[in-house]
Every structure is written in structure tokens, then in C-alpha cells.
Nucleic acid binder design. Sequence first.
DNA 1: TTGTAGGCGTTATCAC
DNA 2: GTGATAACGCCTACAA
Lengths: 347, 347
Amino acid sequence: MTDPPVTLRDVAARAGVHPATASRALNPETRLLVREDTALRVLEAAEHLGYHPNPVARSLRTRRSHTVGVLIPDLTNPLFPPIVRGLEDRLAAAGYVALIGNTDGDGERERLLFEQMRARHVDGMVLATAHLSDPLLAEAARAGLPVVLMNRMAQDHSLPSVSVDNERGMRMAVTHLVAEGHQRIAHIAGPQELSTGLNRYRGFMAAIEAHGLVADPDLIIAAKAFSIEEGLRCTRALLERRSGCTAVAAGNDMLAVGCFAALDEAGLDCPADLSVVGFNDMPFIDRLRPPLTTIRFPHYQVGTEAAQLLLERIAGQDGPVKVLYLAPELVVRGSTAPCRPGEPGLA
Amino acid sequence: MTDPPVTLRDVAARAGVHPATASRALNPETRLLVREDTALRVLEAAEHLGYHPNPVARSLRTRRSHTVGVLIPDLTNPLFPPIVRGLEDRLAAAGYVALIGNTDGDGERERLLFEQMRARHVDGMVLATAHLSDPLLAEAARAGLPVVLMNRMAQDHSLPSVSVDNERGMRMAVTHLVAEGHQRIAHIAGPQELSTGLNRYRGFMAAIEAHGLVADPDLIIAAKAFSIEEGLRCTRALLERRSGCTAVAAGNDMLAVGCFAALDEAGLDCPADLSVVGFNDMPFIDRLRPPLTTIRFPHYQVGTEAAQLLLERIAGQDGPVKVLYLAPELVVRGSTAPCRPGEPGLA
DNA sequence: TTGTAGGCGTTATCAC
DNA sequence: GTGATAACGCCTACAA
């Protein structure tokens, strides 16, 4: 029933050479060590027999699994599929495959998955999770396991990382609102223990200052999570303060969607009563009513670049650690509008 | 720099036993073959040394990689992340990991990925791609490689498969529209060469007949892809026909979104002028204006069930082939409304 | 240029 | 119950 697998021996036998010779002929690295015509014979035999080298055996010998581990919070978060695709595409091009682990933001699960992947002898790890403890990272470093960070970075920049420039993105968002004439701009910040939340908050403050506006604490509120519910809650709280804002810069698109919901609830109109700008440009966010103005995040490239960095480390390139920032892009849609002069601001 | 990896030999040495004994003690399957106290000694030694079995070596010996291949069209299609999560979660629980391959619907890529995964000695495959040629499936069967189909099935039911009951789902959609008083119901069908497109079309026809309505060819149009653009195109065409329909059952949510766009364009209102029902209940589809009435598809469970079926085959269960249908669910939102009596229907 | 031999870490199959 | 031995399929000094 089951086909007998074709091994190197079979190929060698058919080509009338020793397995070692066959191995050399089949391996691009060492093909030049073997005479042209014998190499050809081997190749022909391999072709004829439908030979595929057994990667397991090869891994055992070479201690290379051609496998990398990827830890993300949750694949069903729409942010991640394009990133993962980018990763996989770039890795596949180099003959690597990715093992995806979803941590759900749980530190314990994170640890466990990390260990399991190490146990599976991954050649490297890409970490997009926020909480992975530094001891674990140190352990990886000690074991010589290449690690690349995604959407976060080591405080001391000791590890390669790829992320969008969150500060700059948020500055772009605020600058856009200012250009539309808004003066009292609120910020629904993401969780401040996440680097994305923190850096976007910093970008917000920097932009406010740069434009000579006042950073009114009443205009700033931090969400406990990047969720629609939290966006709803924070916007409600903002409205209750009656602080006269005419625009909101949300920490991400989910918070902006929650903001939309709160406006609906309060009978307010976006953008007539309040301009809203998001962050991420999630799929379908352009189909909302109104279509959300947001900061586009080059998801796919974050993935490809992270893969690239990791492949470089795996290949043993020992150059300086690269910390890569990808430029975000402002996408203006229907949720932002010029501030009506003399507008009283949100009641 | 790099830690020397702890091997079975080390554990055996520390416990004062032969490696084979250590192996037996460490393996749950064979632990009973070894005396309690020696087993304990081995376990203790392993613990102390921080021993992790080398899965590569184990695979070489046991010819089990504890790895399965998963072929999907495109991870960034919002349909798939929950399915993949379901798969991975169920597989992880059994100590397996998934290798994801994106085919982009390209038959050649599909073939290539299939081969690569076979070359990596996956223990089984889950296929969610439509075009995988039957010869390849036959080859897998011949090689004794377990295969499970997702969202499609073998014509002869010769392979285990998991899918949502597309026919039933579409019948539910039509029945809902009929209950709302609609009589002239259009169908924007998905591509008829995809089993999803075909089966939903069949469900549509069956429901129309069951309700004693006429299946007017003017009311039916087939999209070339499950895309917003095609939904737009098809709805435009439908509107031009002036066939007096008051409701549309779209082949999936993307087509429904395109339908929304066409209505906007034509200055028509949903649901006042036309009721629209989608299929899939994609993320954020409930945030559209109006929120889309649709058929919910138990994505996550499709994944877990497919994983379950595959694990059963891998475990060597040779029972009858299981073909599993998961029940869809109607989710009524704002895009469908009662047909206004005496309504002329779409101009 | 090609063959020889040994081992990567584990487990299956024998003996004892 | 435990130890010895031999693979699993491949790669790579080293020798010829």
C-alpha cells in the first residue's frame, strides 16, 4: 500500500556511485567537488526515482530545522494575518517554514510555547508578543537562538526588531487634524503597558506641543485594551467631561470603531460633530460609515522585513543589531472634516 | 557561548542506566516496562539536567513528525484566521503543529506546496483549496498520507471532510427573506466552479422552489470571484435588468458589500429599497451601515473538527470515512426588512 | 575525484 | 526489567 520512500542509497545505487558521492552531487554547495558527468548521472537518477531528501535526517545531521517559531497574540486579530503572510512568504522563499503560536497575551502560554518551539529545534524566533519576559530572551541569546522582535523592541535595542514608527504615525494623525483647523483634540490612548499604546501616546503629546496647543489632561484617556468596548467606554467618559473637543485621535482602529458606537449612542454625527482618526487601516475599515481616516501600517512588510532580519541572523551575519522602523502613511477618508469656525466643540 | 544540549545519554549516565532504559522510562507509552524506582531516578535526572528530547531524532526513528500541512487559499481572507486558529488549537492540544501554506488559488503553487509538505514528512494534510487535482489526492492516498478536506468534499465522499452546510445556509437566507414578504428575490451567486458557490446556488434554487416561487433567470447572476468588485459589477447588472426584485441573497459577505456599494452608487437605500443578505458573518460585517444580515459560519469549529478528523486518521483509526456538515445560523441585522406591500420592486 | 567510516539522538528488537 | 545493538537517512572529515 505505502510507497517505499526513495533514499539517497537508492539514487546512488542507480547511478552506480557511493552514497557520499550522490550526496555531494545533490548538494548545491558541494556539487563542484564531483565530476560533471557523474553529477549528471546522479541528478538523472534522482529525477527518475523521484528522490526527495529526507529533511528530518538532514536536520539531525546539520542541526538546522529550516523552521522558525512565530509568537503572536492572536491570529484572529485582523492586524496579524497580513504580517504572518509576509513572514511566511519571505521565509518560504528561503526554504523555511513558520510555526505559529497564539499566546492570547497570556504570559504563561507565551513561555510554554516558547519552550515548545525551542524543543522543536526552531532555527530562530519572531516575537510579536508584548510580555515575553526578558529572562527568557536572555536564555535564548545564551543558547545562540536568533530572535527578532516585531511591533516592539528591547529597551536597550539589544535585539533586532521591526516596527512601524508609531510616534511618527500619531504625529501625522494629529497634524492632519490640526491642518483641518482642530484645536481641542482628544486622545483615546491604548494600554500604556504596550509599547504601541505608549509610543502613540508619546507621538500625540509631541505633536500637540509641536503645534503649540495645550495638552489638556481632560482630553486624554487611556483604554485598558485595544477593543471596541474600551473605545465605547472611553468616548462615553470623554463626552461626559464636556471638554469641548472637536476631534479625537484614537490609539487604533478598534478604539475608533468604539468611538463611532458612542457617537451613535449620543446622537452625534461624525465628522460633523466630531472628527475621528484611527490607526492601522484594518481591512474593511474603509467600509464603515463614515469610512475611517486612519494611519496605514505596512503590515505585510513588517512581516517580510522581520523574516529578512531573522534569516540574516540565522545565516550567521554578526553585524550590528538592526532596529527597523517602517514609515506609516496617512489615509484620509470621511471621518475627518474641517473644524467649523466658531464651533463650540463637543458639548 | 552556546549551551551543550542535554541528550538522552546524559540523562542515562546520571541515572546510572542504559540509554535504552532511560528512553523507556521517559516515554509514557513504555514507562510500564521499567521498574518504578529506576523510572523515578531517570525522571529525576532528566528534570535536573533540563532534558528535552530531540524531536528531530525522534522523528527520524519513529517516522512521525508531529507536524501537519494545511493548505488554504489566503490567510488574509478574513474567513481563514478563525479556522486556522481552531485547527492550531486542536492540533496543539495533541502535540502537533501546523505548517500553513497559502496557495492564492494557484493550482501550480498548490501542487508545489503539497510536495514540499510531503517532503517535510508531515503526518497528514488539511486541504481547504478548491483546485487540488485529484491525481495528487490519489497519490497521497496511495502513500498512506491522511488527508482531510475543509470547505469542500470529494465527489465520491471518499475523503473525510468538514464543511458548513452551504445549501442549508442559503435556504435559511431565502426563507428569511420570504418570511419578510419578499417574492422576487435575486441571487448573486459565487463562482460556480467552487463548491461553496455551487452549493449555495443549489440551496437558493431549492428554497425558491420550496416556497413556490418562480426561478426567474433574470434574477440570477454569477460572480467570477467572491470579491467586492464582483458584487458591485453583478448588482449593477442586476439593476440594469429592471427585473423588479426586492431582495438579494448574496453568495457571500464580500459580494454583499459590493452590493451595498452599487446601491450607494444608484442612490438606493438598503433595506428600504432592497433587502440584502450575506453569507459568512465576517468580522466587522456587523459594523457596516446597515449591519448586514447574514448566515453565520462556525469558522472556528470547522478548524477544530478538521483537526480532530485528521488526528483520528493519523492515529490509524480505519473506520468509515466521516463527512461532517456543520449547521449554519441566521443572523438577522439591519440589512433586511419586510417587503413593503404593493412595492413595485427594484425599478 | 571518489570511497570509507562514523555519528547526529532516538527507539525497536533482540538477548540476558 | 534492563542492557546491548542496530538502525532511521543524511552529511562530512579523512583517506585513498
